[in-house]
């Protein structure tokens, strides 16, 4: 537990020291939202709630892939070797997942705020929608952390990251979009229980697999 806390704290300190990465990601979200806003400017009334929802989730997907891809790639080889001597791999992966979830929560929160600010807010059940975003952020972070670890081992890692992660994340993305649509239409919350439980189950499977598999990845 203590090790985990130290590792998470290390990630946060590192991030804070190189603030350009963090501000870069924030700028990425904001400018993508703005590009979407301007692109839909030609025909505002064509922006139906479904399109609104889908565009938001696609922005979130690209943000997640870009933000999490760097979680292993940014680390120098020698520094990884240094961690290897100090920490045990399970603590490393869990700390990375927790840190990436926090990062995604921040990015998605700011992104959603700005998105609502420029694109309007058709959401009927805001609490459920925000809960959906939180679930999605954590889910994306947990799937993408292990994929980033895999991709970082190969040479052409940024392309590989996209190819490996998009189909992997699709089940989760579809579930999230459906949950978000339920919230958007303000359906009764009991309708969304199926989606929430499936999302939680996928999260659980993915985190358990990351926990079990990361030691093998780490060693190479």
């Amino acid at each position: 537990m203590h090790e985990l806390r130290t590792l998470i704290w290390k990630e946060i300190t590192l991030e804070w020291r190189q603030r350009y990465a963090l501000s870069g990601m924030l700028l990425y979200v904001v400018s993508t939202v703005f590009v979407c806003y301007l692109s839909f400017n030609l025909k505002r009334n064509e922006l139906t709630p479904i399109v609104w929802n889908t565009v938001f989730w696609i922005i979130l997907l690209f943000t997640a892939v870009n933000a999490i891809a760097k979680s292993f790639i940014q680390e120098r080889h020698s520094r990884l070797l240094y961690y290897y001597t100090l920490a045990n791999p399970q603590a490393v992966i869990i700390s990375k997942i927790i840190y990436n979830s926090l990062l995604m929560l921040v990015l998605a929160g700011i992104g959603f705020g700005f998105y609502v600010f420029v694109m309007g807010n058709p959401v009927a059940d805001l609490t459920l929608y925000i809960a959906g975003i939180a679930l999605g952020s954590i889910g994306f972070a947990s799937v993408l952390t292990l994929v980033a670890g895999i991709a970082s081992k190969a040479e052409n890692s940024s392309m590989l990251m996209a190819v490996l992660s998009f189909p992997m994340i699709l089940p989760m993305l579809l579930m999230n979009i459906r949950l978000a649509k339920n919230a958007l239409d303000g359906l009764d919350r009991s309708v969304s229980l199926d989606e929430i439980s499936t999302l939680l189950a996928i999260d659980l499977i993915v985190i358990a697999l990351s926990y079990l598999l990361f030691p093998y990845l780490w060693r190479s």
Binding site: V147, K153, M168, P171, A201, I202, I205, L213, Y216, L217
Partner: peptide, 20 residues
């Protein structure tokens, strides 16, 4: 390296594939 990393991905992929 290839064997180890693709084995990790293979296991991960199968467990994502089944719910899909």
């Amino acid at each position: 390296r290839r064997a180890r990393i693709s084995a990790v991905y293979n296991i991960f992929a199968f467990f994502v594939f089944i719910p899909l």
